[in-house]
Simulated scan of single mutants.
Amino acid sequence: MSEQLSSVVRPWDLVAQGYAETGAAVLAPFAAHALEYLTIGSESEIVDVAAGTGLSSIAAAELGARVHAIDLSPSMIDQLVAAAAAHPTIVAQVGDGQDLPYEDNRFDAGLSLFGLMFFADRAKGFAELSRVLRPGGTAVVAAWAPAAESSLMRALFGALTAADPTATLPQPDSRSLENPRVFDAEMRAAGLLDVRIEQYTAEVRFPDATALWEALTRSSAALAVVRDEVGEPEWQRRSAAAIDHLTVTYRPNTPLRTTALFGIGTAP
């Protein structure tokens, strides 16, 4: 997936409904883990940058926080608003994480789960997150570890290759946030203090091959673009081939692992 995806609205609009319906199967453990780095009370104000369909926002609101959620995709925000209907402490809006519409020193904490990692200008994203935090506020940013280290991603790309021999597992990118040294340096360059980068691995299980395929493909912006480009008949052909492959290679309810890097820092 290109690191420019977060600067283009269309892929995220295409995937918004599928992301809302299937994304939690993989993302919910990471959203819950992110909040373990925060102390949240009824007076806490949190910003959720590139909030997607609101898993982190809703989890924080359920702990009592007042949350401002922002995402570049109107369709993502529509899904978030619908999911957050029972949480009046969540305010959601369309906007750019590289140019946040909030005043300085506004929030006690800032989150960005698997969003800032795709920004065209990550330096601006980190700087903006730091800017809107109160002194001593906590920033928590999550990015995926290399795909090759994830049995979940290897399963997905094995299925993709069965359907399309040109598909390949993404290669490690030492310039991205999957490199802990880059992650650490970019957070420090934004002025954040006491920065640390930690790994967190979650296990996910699926009842069958179809559920695995649907969960991963319907929550992937990159694959939503592929589906749109190749057309529905070809996508359905590829899906059938991929599910056939997974039916052979994946035993139902077998755990698959995937790892994220969490960057944690403190606003000066």
Results as ranks from 00 to 15, higher is better:
3 E>G: 15
4 Q>N: 14
5 L>K: 04
7 S>T: 14
7 S>Q: 09
12 W>H: 10
16 A>F: 01
19 Y>M: 08
20 A>K: 08
22 T>C: 09
25 A>C: 11
27 L>E: 09
27 L>T: 10
29 P>D: 08
31 A>P: 09
34 A>V: 10
34 A>S: 11
37 Y>W: 14
38 L>I: 00
39 T>H: 12
44 S>L: 07
45 E>V: 11
49 V>F: 07
51 A>T: 10
57 S>T: 03
58 I>V: 11
59 A>C: 07
59 A>D: 06
61 A>N: 13
63 L>Q: 14
65 A>S: 08
68 H>N: 14
68 H>R: 11
69 A>E: 02
69 A>C: 06
69 A>P: 07
72 L>Y: 02
72 L>T: 01
73 S>W: 07
76 M>D: 09
86 A>E: 15
87 H>Y: 15
89 T>N: 11
92 A>V: 07
95 G>R: 02
97 G>L: 05
104 D>S: 03
105 N>F: 13
106 R>Q: 11
108 D>S: 05
111 L>W: 09
126 F>N: 01
129 L>V: 10
129 L>G: 03
130 S>F: 12
132 V>R: 00
133 L>C: 03
136 G>S: 12
148 A>H: 15
149 E>F: 09
152 L>A: 00
161 T>L: 15
163 A>F: 04
164 D>W: 05
165 P>A: 03
166 T>R: 13
169 L>I: 03
169 L>V: 03
170 P>A: 06
170 P>N: 01
170 P>G: 07
171 Q>C: 05
172 P>Y: 13
173 D>M: 09
174 S>V: 12
179 N>C: 02
180 P>H: 08
183 F>H: 00
184 D>G: 05
187 M>F: 05
189 A>C: 07
191 G>C: 00
192 L>K: 00
193 L>I: 13
194 D>K: 14
195 V>Q: 00
197 I>V: 14
198 E>N: 02
204 V>D: 07
204 V>W: 00
208 D>V: 06
210 T>R: 15
214 E>L: 15
215 A>H: 02
217 T>H: 05
218 R>C: 03
218 R>M: 08
218 R>W: 03
225 V>M: 12
227 R>S: 10
227 R>M: 15
232 E>H: 03
236 Q>Y: 06
236 Q>S: 01
244 D>P: 10
247 T>Y: 09
249 T>D: 12
249 T>N: 13
265 G>Y: 01
265 G>T: 06
268 P>T: 07
268 P>L: 09
